[in-house]
Simulated assay, not measured.
Amino acid sequence: MLTTEHRDDVAVLRIEHGRVGALDVELLTALAEAVSASDRALVITGSGSAFSAGVDLRQVLDGGRPYTEQLLAALSRLFRVVFDHPRPTVAAVNGHAIAGGCVLALACDLRLMSGGRMGLAELTVGVPFPTAALEVVRHALGPRAGQVLLGAQSVDRERALALGMVDELTEPGELLPRAVALAGQLAAWSPESYRMAKVQLHRPANAAIEATQEGDAAVLAGWTSDDTRGRIETALAALKRR
């Protein structure tokens, strides 16, 4: 599900969960715990053709409201744990990073991409954004956030670079070495100064998250509505036909 490899002062967390690294409660919890427990610079990457294709929508349908409530809490926890990790974080986007997978990458300090497509596809299946996810997106993309979020499209790596979704493109064989090298460079700065800089940079996003946490009750209602369930069923049926 999740492997950890230490390369000098950098820990590489690799998602190995099914064919596309789908995010479920088990994987989200494992990732959050691994990030929280680490005092190293981190590189987060995927396996095969995907970084992470987002939430496991079949489990959302099968688990109903109780599972979805756990899922949203686990999503928000992971995004915040990665976003506020005191050490450098680099996303090595090896393949498709869609919806929650895209937010996970955007929560990192830097993002490198070698292939696949990237985008925030939540609106295509009718699911609203948890506050933590939205504020991470707003912080990472600035004035482009509305275009990317409301457009709900997945884009190739060149367009992802143009939109500011990633900071650098690499070839597949160069992706992980380059990501580890960048994480190591950032880790050479004073750890306390780096931590404080992130706290200062993230203060507006975290203040917005703290101020609107109660609003996520509406997010849960949106995820579990009949309309959303119908849209998810339609999306899953379309994927099955491919």
Rank of each mutant, 00 (worst) to 15 (best):
L71M: 08
L71G: 03
L71V: 08
L72P: 00
A74H: 05
L75I: 04
S76N: 08
R77T: 15
R77S: 15
L78P: 13
L78M: 14
R80I: 06
V81G: 13
V82K: 09
V82W: 09
F83Y: 11
F83P: 00
D84I: 13
H85A: 07
P86Y: 13
P86D: 15
P86H: 14
R87S: 12
R87W: 01
R87G: 05
P88S: 10
P88H: 04
V90A: 15
A91K: 08
A91P: 03
N94H: 07
G95R: 02
G95P: 01
G95E: 02
H96T: 13
H96C: 14
A97W: 01
I98L: 12
A99Q: 11
A99I: 05
G100H: 06
C102F: 07
C102W: 04
V103D: 11
V103K: 00
L104H: 13
A105F: 07
L106W: 07
C108V: 02
C108G: 03
L110C: 13
R111H: 12
M113E: 12
S114M: 10
S114F: 03
R117A: 10
M118L: 15
A121P: 14
E122Y: 09
T124G: 10
T124F: 01
V125N: 02
T131G: 12
A132T: 07
L134K: 12
V137P: 01
R138K: 10
H139C: 05
H139K: 06
A140M: 02
A140R: 14
L141N: 15
L141S: 08
L141I: 15
G142L: 13
P143W: 06
G146R: 07
G146H: 06
L149V: 15
G151F: 07
G151M: 04
A152T: 09
Q153S: 10
R157C: 10
E158W: 14
E158I: 03
A160M: 02
A162F: 02
A162P: 01
L163Y: 03
M165K: 01
D167G: 14
D167A: 11
E168K: 06
P172N: 05
L175I: 10
P177D: 08
P177G: 04
R178L: 07
V180N: 10
V180W: 04
A181P: 00
A183F: 14
A183L: 14
A183D: 15
A183H: 05
A183V: 08
G184T: 04
G184L: 08
G184V: 04
Q185H: 09
A187K: 12
A188I: 00
A188V: 01
S190A: 12
P191F: 09
